[in-house]
C-alpha cells in the first residue's frame, strides 16, 4: 500500500474496531438512529473541520474558527431579533462577513509574512470580541423559517433521521473531497504544504492560494455558525469555545500530517465520526463522566502523533535504502 494511505487506513481501522467494541456492549448502537444523531450532533464541528483540513494541509493553522462560529450565531440572532430580514438574507450576510474575515487573515499571513498561528490567534480574539459587542446575553431565535428548516429530514431505513444539517455535513464533505483532489486549487494546497518555496518556483500563486484557503476556512466557519444557530436556536457569545481545537484534533485523528502536505478530507470525516462515537458511547453507558471524551481524544491524538512520526521515519529509511540500492 502507498504510504500516504497508511494514516487513513489506521483511522478507518480504529473507527471500525471502536464501533465493534461499542456494538458488542450495546447492540442497539448499530442503528440508523444513532448514526443520524451522530451526524446531526457533530454537523457544526464536521463542517468547520473540513476547512481546518485544508488549512492544515497547506501547512497552516486557523485558531479563529470557534470564535467565528460564535460571532455568526450571535450575529444571526441579533439581526433576526431586531430587523424584519428573512433568515436566508441574514445567512448570506453572515457567510459574506465570515469569508471576508478569513480572506483578510490569509492576506495578512501572506503579505506581512506572519505565522498563521499568531494571525489567527488575533482573529480568534477579534471575532469573539465582536460577538460580545453585539450582545453579551444569550439571544433565542424564534422564527417560523427555523421551524420549517428543522422539520426537514429524511427518514432512513431503520427509523433514523437524516436532518437538514446532517445532510449538509455530508454535502460539505463531498464537496471538500472534490476540491482537494479534483481541482487545481486543491493541488496547490497540497503543493503549498509540501514546500512553499518550491511551489512558487513551480508556478503556484502562493498569495492567491493562501488567501483562498483562509477564505474557505472562514466560509465554512460561517456555515458552521449557521448550522450551530439552527442546532441550538440561539446565539450566545460564549458558545463554541475551543471548537477550533476539537476541529484540529479531528483533522489529526483523521490522519492529516500537522506539518502539511499529506492527508485526506475523507480522513477528517472518519475523525469526526470517531469523536462522535466516543460521546455516544458515554451517553449509552450513562455512568461515565463526559470528560472521558477528552481523555480518549487525548490518547488518540498521541497515538496518531506517534504513528505519523513512525511513518515519516519509515519513509526516510525507505528513501535511504532506495538510494543505496541504486548506489551499490
Amino acid at each position: 500500500m502507498k504510504s500516504r494511505y497508511l494514516p487513513l487506513a489506521a483511522t478507518i481501522l480504529i473507527f471500525v474496531l471502536a464501533y465493534a467494541l461499542c456494538y458488542a456492549q450495546f447492540p442497539s448502537m448499530l442503528s440508523t438512529r444513532v448514526i443520524g444523531n451522530l451526524l446531526t450532533d457533530n454537523a457544526f464541528l464536521g463542517i468547520v473541520a473540513v476547512g481546518m483540513t485544508f488549512v492544515i494541509l497547506s501547512g497552516g493553522i486557523d485558531l479563529s474558527v470557534g470564535s467565528v462560529i460564535a460571532f455568526t450565531s450571535v450575529f444571526i440572532a441579533v439581526v433576526l431579533a431586531n430587523t424584519g430580514l428573512h433568515p436566508l438574507a441574514v445567512f448570506a450576510m453572515a457567510l459574506l462577513i465570515a469569508t471576508a474575515f478569513g480572506a483578510a487573515m490569509g492576506a495578512v499571513i501572506h503579505y506581512l509574512e506572519m505565522p498563521p498561528f499568531i494571525v489567527t490567534l488575533a482573529g480568534m480574539f477579534l471575532a469573539r470580541g465582536m460577538a460580545f459587542v453585539l450582545s453579551i446575553d444569550s439571544i433565542p431565535v424564534a422564527h417560523p423559517f427555523y421551524d420549517t428548516l428543522q422539520s426537514f429530514y429524511w427518514r432512513m431505513p431503520g427509523g433514523g433521521r437524516l436532518t437538514l444539517i446532517g445532510g449538509l455535513l455530508l454535502l460539505v464533505f463531498a464537496v471538500g473531497v472534490l476540491i482537494a483532489h479534483r481541482t487545481r486549487f486543491g493541488a496547490n494546497i497540497y503543493a503549498l504544504g509540501g514546500d512553499a518555496t518550491t511551489a512558487r518556483l513551480m508556478g503556484v500563486s502562493v498569495g492567491r492560494t493562501t488567501i483562498g484557503i483562509y477564505a474557505l476556512s472562514g466560509l465554512l466557519a460561517g456555515l458552521s455558525g449557521i448550522v450551530f444557530s439552527l442546532y441550538t436556536t440561539a446565539g450566545y457569545s460564549l458558545s463554541a469555545v475551543g471548537v477550533e481545537l476539537d476541529a484540529i484534533a479531528a483533522v489529526v485523528i483523521g490522519g492529516t500530517l500537522l506539518t502539511g502536505g499529506s492527508g485526506f478530507v475523507a480522513g477528517t470525516f472518519v475523525g469526526i465520526l470517531i469523536m462522535g462515537l466516543i460521546q455516544t458511547y458515554i451517553i449509552f453507558d450513562g455512568t461515565l463522566s463526559s470528560w472521558w471524551t477528552k481523555i480518549v481524544v487525548g490518547v488518540l491524538l498521541f497515538v496518531f502523533i506517534f504513528l505519523q512520526k513512525g511513518i515519516l521515519w519509515l519513509s526516510a529509511r525507505k528513501a535511504a535504502a532506495l538510494h543505496h540500492a541504486h548506489g551499490s
Partner: peptide, 8 residues
C-alpha cells in the same frame, strides 16, 4: 536540489 514537491 530537485525543485519538485515530494508529497505530490
Amino acid at each position: 536540489e530537485v525543485n519538485l514537491l515530494p508529497n505530490l
